[in-house]
Amino acid sequence: MKPQPQGYSLHIGVNAVDPNSYEGWDGRLDACENDAAVYRSIAEKAGYSSINTLLTEKATTANVLSHLKKAAGKLKSGDILLLTYSGHGGALVDSNNDEPDKQDETWCLYDRQLIDDELHDAFSKFKAGVRILVFSDSCHSGTVSRAPLEADTTSGRKSRLAPIRSLITTYNKHRAMYDSIQSQISTSPADIKAYVVQFGACQDNEEAMEADGNGLFTAKVKKVMKRPAPNYTSFLGAIRKDFDSGQHPHLHHYGNQTYNFLAQAPFVIHR
């Protein structure tokens, strides 16, 4: 009898970073751990067999990469990884010259920035036929050239864009470490045998915001899940409908497209 597909999920919520690793910046946010709980609840309802959460101090690069390594060894063709991140988005100088805009996108984890090259490398370890579903409620590197929007005290909205001054200072202080990480990785999305579908909270020239206990993007995901869309394309459309924040969630996909992941029902293990 053919084994049933399995689901492995990892939910990361970073309400603050270690100031010692970011040159005095603590990256204080309010709603990222709440977002992780939203995605964890979705995974529980969908019947994922292994559900894991890393919050703030536990959300280190070593812990995240360890989970991805474990999932890569465990999951087989037809299985699914759900990876969610809520926190600040940043960027680093592209020292290995694999980005057209000369910047690598990052997630600001507690101990340091996790570079998109590292995620691509981790994804490349997954077997062909594995589905990787990523939700990132964070800002993207396209906005790194300007300062974050000021917090709106009336609406309580706060930006998830890491300040450019802090990013530059941090990179200059820890340049040897970040450049060394990039120099050891040559993986590109074209090298990934799994199929990755990635949702982002905003476009590269926008900022992801949070208010009222959740990221605006995650709050909309939670609302849409009350009446789930039939596939990922319509799911994106439902999320974007009536979005009033000046941010436009997006979707992109890459890897080994041996079957139509986008046509499947969101978060479902059994295709």
Rank of each mutant, 00 (worst) to 15 (best):
N63H: 05
P3K: 15
Y8W: 14
D242L: 02
A37Y: 06
R165I: 12
A194S: 11
F135K: 07
M209F: 13
L82H: 02
G213P: 11
D79R: 07
A208Y: 03
Q182S: 06
G13M: 13
I51W: 01
E150D: 14
R175T: 10
Q257G: 05
N97H: 09
N97D: 09
I80T: 12
N34R: 06
L68H: 04
E210H: 05
Q113A: 04
A16W: 08
H250G: 15
H174K: 15
R175N: 10
E23P: 00
L81F: 03
N214W: 10
R112W: 01
I192V: 15
L216F: 07
H253F: 14
L133Y: 03
K193S: 12
F126E: 01
D30T: 05
Q247F: 10
S245V: 01
A211I: 13
Y85S: 10
N97T: 11
S186G: 13
W107M: 01
D98G: 11
T61C: 09
Q203W: 01
L109T: 04
D30P: 00
V64L: 03
N20T: 03
T60E: 06
F261L: 14
G7C: 02
L114T: 01
G246V: 11
I51C: 02
K102H: 08
S245W: 04
S245D: 05
Q203M: 14
T258H: 04
K222R: 14
T56R: 12
V197E: 08
M177C: 07
Q257K: 13
Y171F: 15
A46M: 06
K70Q: 13
N97M: 07
H248S: 11
K127M: 11
R28Q: 10
S21D: 00
Y48G: 01
G200T: 13
P163R: 10
K193G: 04
N63M: 02
C202N: 10
G142T: 02
S141K: 15
R131A: 10
P148K: 10
A265R: 07
A208R: 05
S180L: 05
A151Y: 04
I192D: 11
V221W: 00
A151V: 07
V17N: 05
H140K: 14
Y171H: 13
D204A: 13
V38M: 01
Y39R: 00
L236T: 02
S49W: 04
L54N: 05
D242K: 09
P189A: 05
T233Q: 15
R165D: 14
I168C: 11
T258N: 12
E210D: 06
S21T: 01
A62V: 08
P266K: 11
H248A: 02
K173R: 15
S136L: 04
A162E: 11
N205W: 07
F126D: 00
S183E: 13
A201E: 01
G246D: 11
A16M: 07
L55G: 03
K125R: 14
V134Y: 03
C202M: 03
A46T: 00
I42S: 01
D79G: 11
F126S: 03
D26I: 09
G255S: 06
Q4P: 05
S86C: 01
D116S: 07
T53H: 00
L251R: 09
G87R: 05
S138M: 09
